[in-house]
Design a protein around this nucleic acid. Sequence first.
DNA 1: CTAACATCTGAATAGTTGCTCATATATTCA
DNA 2: TGAATATATGAGCAACTATTCAGATGTTAG
Lengths: 115, 115
Amino acid sequence: MTEPHLHSPLPRGIDADDAARLSAPFSLLADPSRLRIVYALVEGGPMCVSDVAATAGTGESATSHQLAKLRAAGVVRSERRGREIWYQVADAHIRLLLGVAAEHYLAENTPGAAS
Amino acid sequence: MTEPHLHSPLPRGIDADDAARLSAPFSLLADPSRLRIVYALVEGGPMCVSDVAATAGTGESATSHQLAKLRAAGVVRSERRGREIWYQVADAHIRLLLGVAAEHYLAENTPGAAS
DNA sequence: CTAACATCTGAATAGTTGCTCATATATTCA
DNA sequence: TGAATATATGAGCAACTATTCAGATGTTAG
C-alpha cells in the first residue's frame, strides 16, 4: 500500500458522521414497500393503518412495523381516532425528496413538490 | 380479515413496479460509504479509484466494488487513463437528490445543486 | 520479458433488514 | 363484562448487502 497521489486539488469529502446523517433519509425511501407507504400518505393525506396498507398494497402487520419505523425517524406523526390510529407525513424534507425523485424517475404527476 | 374502509376519497398509490423504480436511486445513496464515494466525485470532479478511496475514507477494494455497482446503475462513468481508471458522476438526478439532501440535512455549502 | 502498480473480481463472512406469525394492548359496542 | 375490531409488538427466519481477503487482469517502466 503506497500513498495515494491525490491528483485533484484538495477534494475533501464528508466525514463518516455526516455521511450517516445524510444516508439515513435515503434508506427510509430505499425499500419499495416503505416507499409505497410514504407515497400513499403524501398523496392521500392522513389515513388509518388499514387504509395505508390497502393503498400501498402491503400487509397490515408489515405496514404497522414500517409506520413505527417511520414514526421513530420523525417522518410521520400518529394520532388516535377511536380505535383507529391515523398517520400523516410530518417531514417536509422527505416529501420533497420523494417529489423530486418521482418527477425525475417517473415523469408523471408528482406528489407534494409541484403546484 | 374484513375489508378495509377506505375513508379518504380514492387515494391510489403507485404500483410495485414504479415503487421499485423509485426506490432504486434511494438505495444507492442509502449506504454511508457509497454516499461518501458519490459525494467525493460530485464535489471533487473526475478522479481515479485510489483518490476516490482516499477522499471518501473507504478501502480501495470496497471502493472498487461500490464504483462497479454505481457504474452498473449508470450513476458514474469510467475511463482508463494509463494504468488508472478515472470515474465521474454521469447522472444529474442523483446529483440533484444528493444536493437537496445535503442542503436540508447538513445545512451547509451544498454540492452540485446550487450556484 | 519482468517487476511494480492500479484496479477488478469472486468467494466467504458478518451484519442488517423486512416479512410473517403469534400474541398483546387498547377501544368500542352490545 | 365479554366479544369484536384496530393496531402494536416481539420472536424467528430468510434474503440481501457491504466488507475483506486472495488472486486475476491490464498497464507502464526498465
